[in-house]
């Protein structure tokens, strides 16, 4: 079974200070803080590795490929995945700003999936900065594959099937399914990617990252992807600081009344 795991490297936005949230040309510069795995994708990567381990004894090994879109700055992440024994680490070369263009990313991924004949695609439901939450869904549509979202567990089954556990709005669903399928990973209980040893980095990290130029994999027409992508008109700041409204006059009972009438009543109604 060929499994493709897609991931994105995202800046750690919690490291930005208030003054950093300056919007210039409809963008915020996030280039001076550390990058990390997108958490949902990190779960997806670890889930893929666990799936492959379990599959080893049941139905033979899987062929694992990790793919991301970006410039060479993300190669160190791809190298880590090689050290964790992904057979292929692929980077789709892109320099442009794709924060709000899941359509473009999905089009490229679909091209790569078709070209490399994958059976299963695993990726996080959503990633930071853009917070589009659309890429896996659009990918499924472009491939014409079924899709399961909010996946929290994947196990191998006989006859090339997978047992997929996913969260529903009022419960948990466990299905045995026959690929092809796009699985998008939600709030999985295990969310951290294992860490490769220095030895494995030396042994497996020598393999090089495969770099793919988008024009080599685009099968359907790109302009459609661009047109249908929503256009960012403007970005505006939101007040993140809590208000810290002080209630300090009157008796305790007066204060409780103000608190209740002004702030709690509406909220309690929603609970």
């Amino acid at each position: 079974m060929k499994v493709l795991t897609c991931f994105k490297v995202v800046p750690d936005l919690t490291l930005l200070t208030d003054e950093d949230w300056q919007v210039v040309n409809n963008q915020v510069d996030v280039g001076f803080v550390k990058n990390d795995w997108n958490p949902f994708d990190e779960s997806a990567l670890e889930m893929t590795l666990k799936l492959s381990e379990l599959s080893e004894s049941l139905s033979g090994s899987m062929e694992l490929t990790a793919v991301s879109v970006g410039n060479k700055k993300i190669d160190s992440f791809l190298k880590t995945l090689l050290a964790l024994k992904f057979q292929h680490a692929v980077r789709i070369e892109a320099e442009q700003d794709l924060r709000f263009n899941p359509h473009q990313i999905a089009a490229w991924l679909a091209g790569y999936v078709k070209k490399s004949h994958q059976d299963v695609v695993v990726m996080g439901v959503q990633s930071g900065v853009g917070d589009n939450a659309q890429t896996p869904l659009l990918l499924a549509e472009k491939l014409g594959w079924p899709s399961i979202t909010q996946v929290i567990g994947i196990k191998p089954e006989k006859n090339g099937c997978l047992r997929v556990t996913s969260q529903m709005d009022d419960g948990v669903l466990e299905q045995v399914i026959k690929p092809p399928v796009v699985l998008s990973v939600g709030n999985a209980p295990n969310s951290f990617l294992r860490v490769p040893t220095l030895k494995d980095k030396l042994n497996y990290g020598k393999k090089s990252v495969e770099v793919i130029i988008p024009t080599d994999i685009i099968v359907d027409n790109t302009t459609e992807a661009e047109i249908h992508a929503p256009k960012l008109i403007k970005l505006s700041a939101i007040e993140n600081q809590r208000d810290s409204v002080k209630i300090q006059d009157g008796t305790p009972s007066d204060k409780a009344t103000i608190l209740f009438n002004r702030y709690l009543k509406q909220r309690l109604k929603k609970l």
Partner: peptide
Amino acid sequence: SKLVYGNHLRGYFKLDF
């Protein structure tokens, strides 16, 4: 409109189709 950049900003998007 929706929240973007990890809920730090509000984005306004135009949908065409």
